[in-house]
Write a protein that binds this DNA or RNA. Structure first.
Lengths: 207, 207
DNA sequence: GTCTATATCGCGATAGAC
DNA sequence: GTCTATCGCGATATAGAC
């Protein structure tokens, strides 16, 4: 029975993953304080007390959710570093990747957005240590392009702010966009239109 | 003593205004569920029970806050309608007004953003009735410009989405921006840079 | 690891004196 | 209109049997 431990480990991991997934969904809808552990437990299919066996406090669960959100994001957004590609291609890929994240993981984006809007009471330290260097790296890439004359002169920091804002809003403000567009949820065509618009705006300014 | 009623009315109104102001601040920080009436009461300088005398339930207070936020926004954003001005000037004014709102009323913007991110559980009806027509009117202005050949061909809906996203983010994501910029709060210069960047991007695309 | 039971607390809201 | 007192509920978290 040497498979038994593996199976146990796997099912334990699977249960934790199910809890995390449920937690992302509920936190995205109701925020940290507005979320009841019972809602998460119900969605994950176990009791509230049992949930507290795997995650001893609500805040620890919340921090782990934020960590997972950040990891998923980092996995996808290491785009600008490829020195082989020209800026226009890299910018297009960057915008596309961020829009894909907004489409495929809207709850992740919303949990993070709520934390930031609240002033990052829980996550400020991690933002400073893990997110800030990443953003500065992206800005540095823009600066290098500018110095090499590959793109027009721009305020690189605010250019990056603009790109985040436009792409992220397709997750965070999806409910308002659905209202305007007349259908819910946003579909593939909406994201294609979004990508076209954003890429055109950015490239028409910097190239 | 015919001034007495006026004075009373005025101080009652003043107290209600103080409560509303405190409520905007706390709701912006903690969201609806995360806000304790006691926090609002303390910030407004009265007891929780007395607050409930002026606003009988938490939800009613929250809805009045959202209404006030919306009214403040509507007051400032009726910009695009002037048929005398050319599109470039109107777009610049529109972006400037929305950025000014993000700068002067960041809490208002954040309360609204949190409500939208949560899927607008409380405010969906009002959004449909009061905000949607306004947005459609702005989009219609873009469409008219396009039809008249005054601006380049664009997806007007997503253009408006982009402008909201970029301008609104200077309120909602201010804590993240402060981290990158290395100072808090955002200052006049940051907003000047933002305006320049956003206006250039939009105009380089459509004009 | 999962269950029943429960401790403990903070919150929204109400009652009633003044 | 403001105060003291308190109800009732739902929440996080813990204890202990199995």
């Amino acid at each position: 029975m040497d498979r038994a431990p593996d199976k146990l480990t796997r099912s334990r991991d699977a249960l934790q993953a199910r809890i995390m997934q449920a937690a992302v969904e509920v936190f995205a809808e109701s925020g940290y304080a507005g979320t009841a552990l019972a809602s998460i437990a119900e969605r994950a299919g176990l009791s509230k007390q049992n949930l507290l066996y795997y995650f001893p406090t609500k805040q620890i669960l919340y921090e782990k959710v934020l960590d997972q959100v950040l990891d998923q994001w980092l996995d996808r957004m290491n785009i600008l570093a490829d020195p082989e590609q020209d800026p226009a291609t890299l910018l297009r890929n960057y915008i596309r990747a961020k829009l894909r994240f907004s489409r495929e993981q809207p709850q992740a984006s919303r949990v993070y957005a709520m934390e930031v809007i609240s002033g990052a009471p829980v996550y400020a330290e991690t933002m400073r240590n893990k997110i800030l260097p990443l953003l500065q790296k992206d800005i540095a890439v823009f600066e290098a392009w500018m110095a090499a004359g590959k793109i027009a002169a721009v305020n690189t920091t605010h250019l990056l702010f603009a790109i985040w804002a436009m792409t992220q809003s397709y997750a965070d403000f999806a409910s308002q966009m659905s209202l305007v567009l007349g259908h819910s949820p946003l579909d593939e065509n909406d994201f294609t239109e979004a990508e076209t618009m954003i890429v055109e705006m950015v490239l028409s300014r910097v190239c």
